[in-house]
Write a protein that binds this DNA or RNA. Structure first.
Lengths: 232, 232, 232, 232
DNA sequence: GATGAATGAGATTTCATTCAT
DNA sequence: GATGAATGAAATCTCATTCAT
């Protein structure tokens, strides 16, 4: 299971191996439960080397959080193109989000489970990333309001709550999709778009949100088929 | 710091004191970080007595989870009256939920943060409670579908995702409301109702969900004011 | 070598055993070299018990310093009677000093060697004790000056240097007497009295200091015999 | 912080840099606390090079002790001219001693504090140097005895104690002078000469030792002023 | 000649848990 | 019923020391 032991690697490579091992171990066993011994072994190096490069368990964990937070936000950003309609941007961002969390379950566990649970140096780190996502969603809602010609737009405090709710729902669905074997990232994104954009009330009346046609017309989100096919 | 030492209390009372101390300690310091010493001291008893009554740290933590899970689900259930319209039931349930989590922050931390983070005996325990809440929401959505005369109703797997999203959003907003000083349980519930029932799309068009008049006409939810007074 | 293991001793007794073991270990192997394992084993207890009672290596070492410092100063004080002539008081104090250091070589090593070498929490602790001894000697010199009707007495700064020199010589002779097998505390005290009171110049001229007759007329100090027998 | 890295220096120079760094580090932080990393960095070389030149920490420390011991004894020897009266030789030697210890506090700490505290290879090393100083003082006392026409001289064992006391007092005063900011080497030497040569008894009677006029008539020792100006 | 890469061994400290009274 | 006394096991971290280039 541990990486093949090959000696004398350049520092950057070793450091990556250590972070990989640490994310995996922290994600699966938790910050406190994971031991530096485990991580070193999984990385295929001795414990002192881990300390030499990453200083302490705390600092190692922080490095994991930063790396995974950066990877996640960059994945979302890369999935979205500015200039498209707000719902389209949200749809793209959610797909990127669910894809990334599905492909990096340990990193996601580090961010969503471990970092928030184990107190102050870490919670702040992940809170920064979360705020970035919330800000992104807030901006999208503001754009949507402009597109709908609503003047004056929604009060600021209210939008904050809505963005918070949307991000929270997305986080929760990421766990759900990772746990339920058959659920794809695309399905999770579709479910959330319907829920968040159309709302339960509309869904009850048979008026779901439907994905925009565009680069990826391959598959329609799950709910559409079950709910008639109204154009948006 | 601990409670005043008074000997020879009936077992049930002592046990409650211990659980109170444990919930507080686990909630504030985390499962691994909290020590049995701390808990015993806070409970005002000696450590062996804690072991006599609750066997082990694991079993003590499990007891905490069960007690807090029961308290939370019962609070939600008590807040809802069957027979009312689905959105009204949801509204009442959410208010009860946010009220309870605001009044029991340590218990909520145990359930939402600690129990999920620290592996298998505990994650299952809290998952059971969560399923109960999800099932409750799922049932509400089914009721709503019937009320809307939709036959056949939404496919089962899709409703599961929606319920999951709603519960996830609620959990997230509970943390958000606990952290933001000025946010009341009622405001959190209103925000979530708008988001979940009306959906962002409708909100953009100025058609929010509005709370039913009834027992609590005292305060209108936050979003209503900004959105005119549409009929429900 | 370790004390007989007998379980369930009252805390005070155990604590004394631990301090005994610690003084011996620190004195013979040094603060850094001595390990908590060694000390616990020598005390006949497990390591955690040492931590339970004495908190940390640093705090254990500090406790050793305090205990030994108190024992030494009290031994000196107990050996001296106020009201006697200054040289007699000094003679009595030195005898008590050399007797105590000879009987407690490990405690003396802790105070004189280890505590001074290992930095700040400890150096200050032993400096306080040393100042007490220096102050005692300074006072004796002042008394001697009064007895000699010297007005004005020696300048203060000068007396400080003299007292420092006397104490330093005593410390050094304590090590010397402990290392040289045949040297008794009485001989060490006599040597120092001659050196410090009469001075090398007088000794060269055959005018040593001679011990007062009194309670302990049993043995004359070493130098007297070799240097004629002038009455004082 | 470390010296500028410049490659390809002759071995002797490199070795000196390392010893300088080691003396400073050992003197300020202690033998055990100082790490080879620190020393190598301060010396501006890589750790393996230190090992290549000086083999081990133990051997490095021994080299430090030897170098500093040699420097100190040579300084004292260089300060004294044979043929002069004994008290003059002693006065000159003490001045050299206090001057050297004041100018090399780290070296003095290595010799007086660290080397004696950290067990056997080192204690023997510094004991050899000390014996040299004690032998020098012993010889001076013998010379003084001859000058005073005392035959037979003081018994050997007794002189040993006196020399020991004198050296101990000098060591102690070196620390004292280094710690007290205003005390010069000359003042320390004068204090000790008065104490050791005249003795407290004579000082009480107003008969201090007074320094010989000669090469350094610049400053009179501290005690002289307070004690008239008796010829030697 | 010089060093970046790497480690074996051991240090202090903590904690859940159990006896014996 | 209740507790003071005690420990086995394991955690984090440090350091002198050595390869391989």
């Amino acid at each position: 299971m541990g990486a093949v032991k090959s000696k004398r690697m350049p520092r950057a490579v070793r450091e990556r191996q250590m972070l990989d091992a640490a994310v995996r171990t922290f994600g699966q066993r938790g910050y406190r439960t994971a031991s530096m011994d485990e991580i070193a072994e999984l990385a295929g190096v001795s414990k002192p080397l881990v300390y030499l490069y990453l200083n302490s368990k705390e600092s190692l964990f922080t490095a994991c959080i930063r790396r995974e937070a950066k990877a996640l936000t960059e994945a979302v950003r890369a999935g979205v193109r500015a200039g498209l309609p707000a719902d389209r941007q949200l749809w793209d961002g959610l797909q990127a989000f669910f894809t990334h969390t599905a492909e990096n379950p340990d990193g996601w566990a580090v961010l969503h489970l471990q970092a928030r649970t184990h107190g102050e140096p870490f919670a702040a780190e992940v809170a920064a990333m979360r705020e970035e996502l919330v800000a992104f969603v807030t901006e999208l809602i503001a754009v949507a309001a402009r597109e709908a010609h609503r003047d004056p737009s929604l009060a600021e405090g209210e939008v904050a709550g809505l963005a918070e709710a949307l991000v929270g729902a997305a986080e929760s669905l990421a766990d759900w999709a990772n746990a339920a074997p058959g659920v794809t990232a695309r399905q999770a994104a579709a479910t959330l778009m319907n829920f968040a954009w159309a709302g339960l009330g509309n869904l009850m009346d048979g008026r779901p949100w439907s994905p925009p046609s565009g680069t990826d017309v391959l598959a329609a989100p799950a709910l559409t088929s079950a709910a008639g096919a109204p154009p948006r």
